[in-house]
Amino acid sequence: MFNIDFNGEFATFFIFSAIMIIGAVLMVSLQKVVHMVISMAGVFLGLAGMFVLLDAEFVAFVQVLIYAGAVSILMIFGIMMTNHQAAKADPVKPLHETLAAVAALCLFGMLFYAIRTTDFPDAQPMKAVEDNTSSIGELLYTGYVVPFELLSVLLTVAFIGAIAIAKKGAD
C-alpha cells in the first residue's frame, strides 16, 4: 500500500520520522519529567529536519531556536520551579487511560483512513526558491504586515502578562 519510490528524500524522511516517533513515544512513557522534556527536544529537532526536507529552511531555523531552544528550556525551568518534591506514585486510572488511548487510536484511524482515501491532486511540487529567508521576509512585510504587527503586540502582551502572573505570588 505504501507505493512510494525509495529515493533519498524518503530515506531522510524515514530517519527523521523514526527519531520523532521514538521521541514522542518516550515523551509519553518516560517516568522522569526532565527525561520527557529532553525526548521532546528530540522531536522538535526531528521536525526541524523535516522542515528542511520540505524546503522551509527559515521555519526549520525558527523551530530549532524557539522550540528546541526556548520552549524546552522554559519547560525545564517550569519543572524546576514547580517540582520540588518528586511526584508521589500517582494513583492509576486505568479506565480513563484506556479510553484516552482508544480515542486517540480511533482518531488516528479516521485521519489515516481519510489521508489514504483522499485523491490528492498531482500538482508540481513547489520549486525551492533562491533565498527562502528573504522571500519570507518580503512576504511578511508586504502581504502579512498587519497580522505580523498584531502578533508582535500579542507576544509582548503575553510575555509581560506571564511575568506579572509569575511574579505576583512571589512578593
Binding site: 522551509a56 527559515f58 521555519v59 525558527v62 523551530q63 524557539i66 522550540y67 526556548a70 520552549v71 522554559l74 519547560m75 525551568f77 517550569g78 520551579m81 514547580t82 527562502n132 519570507i136 512576504l139 511578511l140 502579512y144 497580522p147 502578533l151 500579542l154 507576544l155 503575553a158 510575555f159 502578562g161 506571564a162 511575568i163 502572573i165 509569575a166 505576583k168 505570588g169
Partner: peptide
C-alpha cells in the same frame, strides 16, 4: 510557511503564559 511561523509565535506565547500560570 508564514502561517507556520505565526503558529510558532503564538505557541511560544502560550508556553510562556502557561508556565507562568503553572508557577502561580
Amino acid at each position: 510557511q508564514v502561517f507556520a511561523l505565526f503558529t510558532i509565535t503564538v505557541a511560544a506565547a502560550e508556553a510562556a503564559v502557561g508556565v507562568a500560570v503553572l508557577i502561580a
